[in-house]
């Protein structure tokens, strides 16, 4: 505190501005800061508690049957997985039905897909045509088990247009 600020006060503040710190003050300050550090570290440690170490979600992989179940030109919607499986001459591909904008479920239309929440529209390959969606619908990885069954991994995205050739 500057002397001019001290002047206006009825009682003189009892705070010394000693450059040298006494042993007592040093120990007191150390104790205060030790407490503060302990609390801060405790809080940081406790903050880890609400972060789930293991997500309770079920596996992203699911079997969809054999390639013969998907005739060329077909489109099969798996409502419980929010996924659609297409088959054309070039192969199979799985598209997510979850809008990339804010997670509503898009519905299939004749031109492609449209989202009810904020009016995003996608073409048949899932590319954004209209609305606020920031990117194309996800294309999921398809693989085949030795048994011949197809597996979709909804946790793995592949580039738009990458089809699985049977």
């Amino acid at each position: 505190m500057s002397p001019s600020a001290e002047k206006g006060l009825a009682c003189k503040p009892n705070i010394g501005l000693n450059k040298k710190i006494s042993r007592r003050d040093f120990l007191e300050l150390s104790a205060v800061w030790a407490c503060a550090t302990a609390w801060v570290l405790t809080v940081i440690g406790l903050l880890k508690f609400p972060k789930p170490a293991l997500l309770p979600d079920i596996s992203n992989k699911f079997k969809i049957g054999k390639p013969e179940d998907f005739p060329v030109g077909s489109a099969k919607i798996l409502a419980d997985k929010n996924t659609v499986i297409f088959r054309d001459e070039e192969g199979l591909f799985a598209l997510s039905l979850v809008c990339t904008h804010l997670g509503c479920i898009v519905s299939k239309t004749s031109e492609g897909f449209s989202c009810p929440c904020h009016g995003s529209k996608y073409d048949k390959k899932g590319n954004v045509v209209k609305g606020p969606a920031p990117r194309a619908l996800d294309w999921f990885e398809i693989s085949q088990l030795p048994s011949g069954k197809l597996v979709v991994d909804a946790g793995k995205r592949v580039p738009v247009g990458k089809k699985y050739t049977v």
């Binding site: 929440c117 606020p132 920031p134």
Partner: peptide, 23 residues
């Protein structure tokens, strides 16, 4: 698997939802 159409937030967030429909 079936969103409300329209899916609207509580009214006090709808001003924001309008902005959200742009970005």
């Amino acid at each position: 698997s079936v969103p409300e159409n329209p899916a609207k937030a509580p009214w006090y967030f709808l001003g924001l939802q309008e902005l959200v429909s742009y970005s």
